[in-house]
Amino acid sequence: MYSYEKTGILSKKDLKLPSKKQLEKGVAIIECVQEIPCNPCVDSCPVNAISMKDVNAPPIADYDKCIGCGKCIGICPGLAIFLTKIKDNKALITLQYEFLPIPEVETKVKALDREGNVVGKAIVKKVVKEGKTMVIAIEASADLAMDIRNIRVDS
């Protein structure tokens, strides 16, 4: 039994982590580890950086191929893909956000980890509406790049 099956929280050990160089380029980190019948991320990738043995296999991201375009972020039904880029000691994380109010660009928001704990502050850098899905890019401290997975917007 994996501990995430009991807790619902992935640890970094469960994930394929990108190298420093790959993070500087910006890559899509896929936090989808179970065999579930789902594959829209594979179809969304313009450079075939996401592969899957069959529709039930977990997706595997090729960080060398990934161009960090973010097309897979908004399509993922599990909200499980996080585009992560480190530049000038800042982390730029792009994620899906499905709550109201929708933050405006340059708003300060709370940065949450996989357990919903506030681990720092972030600034909203980009808000893109893809259908009814909000894809939001936030900027935070670089050391939190692999920890921040959600935001809280104070209304």
């Binding site: 039994m1 995430y4 099956e5 009991k6 807790t7 619902g8 929280i9 992935l10 936090e31 989808c32 580890v33 179970q34 579930i36 039904p77 599990g78 909200l79 499980a80 949450l112 980890d113 996989r114 357990e115 919903g116 704990n117 997975r149 959600n150």
Partner: peptide, 23 residues
């Protein structure tokens, strides 16, 4: 049940909003 029956990705969405899951 001792483990979460639904998809991990659904559980993860809840957990990162701060909702605990007691198996």
């Amino acid at each position: 049940v001792p483990i979460i029956g639904g998809y991990h990705v659904h559980a993860a969405k809840l957990r990162r909003c701060g909702v605990p899951i007691y198996t």
